[in-house]
């Protein structure tokens, strides 16, 4: 780690920044950021819990419309992409740059596949007039309206996070190909992995809450 020690002590003098590398601090910051993401979704989960408590029947009726097969497939896709991110970090630690990049490519493909599935699900619902303010919702009970309102907000916000995660991973891949990330300096990759796993974890909860209410 002597190389790193030197980085530590070269206080850069441009514009006043004392830039140094601190992997543990970087990881800590990433975890704190994940907490904010968790609580962002947490507010929505709390709303879901409250309304499911209040409108248990309406939620069940509405969820019958969901295709739990697509939901399960998407769950498997995200779980697999989580595996590939974890494997890419393990590969990076072993200096297997090509394998690490390959695993990240696979992750990105999984993410895109997830989004395509999501797109078809949403367009199916929208086609049937089920969207906030849509014609089909007018004849539905309050519970069903709230179910679909939350469904769009929560899966939409989750989809947004998938997209952000994909961008994050793409940037990391550029870093890897330029050897900015190496077997001794891979905290950025690890942080991208942490973010991707959080996206996965949120889906792990969204799946049973929206698809499995029979």
């Amino acid at each position: 780690m002597t190389e790193h020690s030197e980085v530590m002590h070269q206080g850069e003098s441009h514009g006043g920044a004392h830039v140094h590398r601190d992997d543990e601090g970087s990881k800590m910051a990433m975890w704190l950021f994940l907490f904010t993401e968790l609580l962002l979704f947490g507010g929505l989960f709390l709303l879901y819990g409250a309304y499911r408590f209040e409108y248990a029947d309406g939620f069940k009726v509405a969820a019958a419309d969901m295709n739990s097969f697509i939901g399960a497939v998407n769950t498997i896709i995200l779980l697999t992409s989580s595996l590939s991110v974890a494997l890419s970090i393990a590969a990076m630690q072993r200096s297997q740059k090509k394998l690490a990049l390959g695993m990240l490519w696979f992750t990105i493909l999984c993410g895109i596949a997830f989004l395509i599935n999501k797109y078809f699900e949403w367009s199916h619902e929208i086609h049937n007039g089920i969207y906030p303010g849509g014609p089909a919702l007018e004849n539905m009970s309050n519970g069903e309206v709230l179910y679909f309102g939350l469904y769009y907000v929560m899966t939409g916000l989750h989809g947004l996070h998938v997209i952000i995660g994909l961008i994050f991973i793409s940037v990391i891949m550029v870093f890897i190909s330029r050897d900015k990330i190496t077997s001794t300096n891979f905290q950025k990759l690890e942080n991208a992995g942490l973010y991707w796993h959080l996206v996965d974890v949120i889906w792990i909860f969204l799946f049973p809450l929206f698809y499995l209410l029979h």
Binding site: M1, H4, S5, M8, R21, D22, D23, E24, A86, L87, A90, Q93, R94, T184, F186, Q187, E190
Partner: peptide, 12 residues
């Protein structure tokens, strides 16, 4: 900070 090498090498 000098132990930044992440000692764990989890097997595939």
């Amino acid at each position: 900070e000098h132990a930044q090498g992440h000692g764990h090498n989890v097997s595939y």
